[in-house]
Simulated assay, not measured.
Amino acid sequence: MNKWLTTGEMIDQLTVREVAISQSGDEASWEGGELMFEPSTHKIMENNFSRRMNKVYQNENWKIRPRYVSFEEAMKALREGKEVRLHYREFDYYVVNKDLMHDMLIKLDIADASFNTMLTGKWTIENV
């Protein structure tokens, strides 16, 4: 979620179970094959919104929020040979695969992280 995307880029890159957040606080996600929008609280209070694509969203900029999974889901994906990441602190994360799990645990201990960080941390599955 580093760079701002145009509405078209967001639509092309957004996958099922991901959520995109606009600069104005709106959210977009795929629901049943349809791109749906959840307006910001401000727009709801003004009764100035739509849950479907319209010109209001045409000039928005978006960032796709990662879909975080639990530690258990991440470990299951790891056993299946997928790459998972633990997002630790705001800009730092570790890429994990079966062979590097032990090394990552050592690095986390050096970084003063606890086992609790792994259990309650924010994980993503990279190659779903």
Rank of each mutant, 00 (worst) to 15 (best):
V56A: 03
G121E: 11
G33Q: 06
D99F: 01
F91G: 13
Y93I: 00
N61W: 07
M53T: 02
P66S: 11
W123T: 06
A74Q: 07
F49Y: 15
G32P: 05
L119I: 15
Y68E: 00
G25E: 09
E18P: 10
M1V: 12
F49N: 02
S24V: 02
L78C: 09
S29C: 08
G32W: 11
E80W: 03
H42E: 15
Q13D: 02
S22I: 02
F37V: 10
T7N: 05
R67M: 06
I44E: 05
I125F: 03
D92Q: 12
I11N: 01
D103C: 03
S24M: 04
I125W: 04
F71M: 05
Y68Q: 05
K82C: 11
Y57F: 14
D109V: 00
L100K: 08
N47L: 10
H102D: 11
E46P: 04
A74W: 02
F49M: 06
S29Q: 13
T41Q: 14
W4F: 13
E90P: 02
E60Y: 01
R65Y: 04
E72I: 10
N48S: 09
T124P: 02
N48V: 00
E34K: 14
L35C: 10
V16T: 14
M75Y: 02
D103G: 08
A74H: 07
N54H: 10
E27T: 06
N54G: 11
R89S: 13
E80V: 04
V56W: 08
V19L: 12
K107E: 09
K43T: 00
E31K: 15
R89F: 08
D112A: 06
V69D: 01
A111G: 07
E34M: 12
N116S: 11
R51C: 06
K82W: 04
R52S: 11
N47M: 10
Y93C: 09
N47K: 15
A74T: 03
N59L: 11
T7P: 01
D109I: 03
K122M: 07
T7V: 08
F49D: 08
F71P: 01
R79Q: 12
